[in-house]
Simulated scan of single mutants.
Amino acid sequence: MAIHSGSTQIASTTRRSGSREAIVDAAHRLFLERGFGAVRMDELAEAAGVARRTLYNQFANKEEIFREMLLRVSRQLETAFPPGVETQGGVEEVLRLIARVILDLHKSPEYLGFLRMVVADSRQFPWIAEELAVVMNPQTERLVRFLAHLTSLGVLNCRNPTLAAHQFMGALNDLSLWPWMLGRPRLPVPDDEVIEATVQMFLKYYQSAPIKESRS
């Protein structure tokens, strides 16, 4: 009896977990197709293939489902930017590695779909963009700290590490992320070329000698 009871409990937990995943998958599809505000909970239950009661046992409202989707994005970022990335070689090697990670993320349909949904719905639901920023900002701050640290060592000359970090990411986003978001083709340039050009352009400016102020 103990074995049977344990097996039943495991099966029940698995079903609950499967239902939860199915609901989030359905929400991802419907939110992207129609927008967060246009989708009703009943429609999510039908799309996920679960009973309405099952849906409400898992999530009290759409906001909770959105936050579960956000957890997926957070896990993607944590996997893409594991601890210690900043120590994987010299400045050029690390910048190339970070650039590669960013471009690889831009190839994830789930990641891109989530970003597109947030952009589309954030005007009506500003909290969506705010909660995404809470997840995204720590990764940007890691790059800022990395650039600030190298500046303190004299390797780089980033007077404003935050500006420098956004310039580096912005160059990559403009070539890879925004074309997809706007539904236009990206430049037919291989990733290796994009990465090398971006890193060298960045270093050409930020490894330059600091400008000395003239004294009267």
Rank of each mutant, 00 (worst) to 15 (best):
Y206G: 03
T151K: 04
I128H: 07
P83E: 15
K62V: 15
R67G: 03
P185M: 08
A2E: 14
G49W: 10
R16F: 05
W127E: 15
E64P: 12
N157Q: 04
A165G: 00
T13H: 11
L112W: 01
M201N: 09
V134Y: 08
P190Q: 06
S152F: 05
E196D: 13
D192C: 01
A38P: 04
L163N: 04
G183P: 01
I211R: 10
L70T: 02
M69I: 02
A129R: 07
M201T: 13
L153C: 09
M117I: 02
V155Y: 00
F66P: 09
E196S: 05
E46Y: 07
L30E: 14
W180K: 12
Q76L: 05
I211G: 02
D191W: 05
K212W: 05
R67N: 12
K107P: 01
S12P: 00
E33C: 05
Q124S: 15
F81N: 10
P83S: 14
M69P: 02
A165E: 01
F114W: 06
S122L: 08
D174P: 00
L187Y: 14
L203Y: 03
G37A: 10
A27Y: 08
G35S: 09
V155F: 02
D25N: 14
Y205V: 06
S12L: 11
L182N: 11
P109E: 07
A171S: 10
Q139Y: 13
K204I: 08
S108L: 01
A209D: 07
E93D: 13
M117R: 04
F81Y: 14
N173D: 13
E43T: 06
L32E: 08
R53E: 12
S216W: 15
E78H: 10
G18K: 04
Q207T: 03
H149D: 07
R67V: 05
Q139S: 06
V155R: 09
F31N: 04
M169N: 12
L182W: 11
V94K: 04
E213Q: 09
S176W: 04
P185T: 08
S17L: 11
H166G: 00
D192P: 00
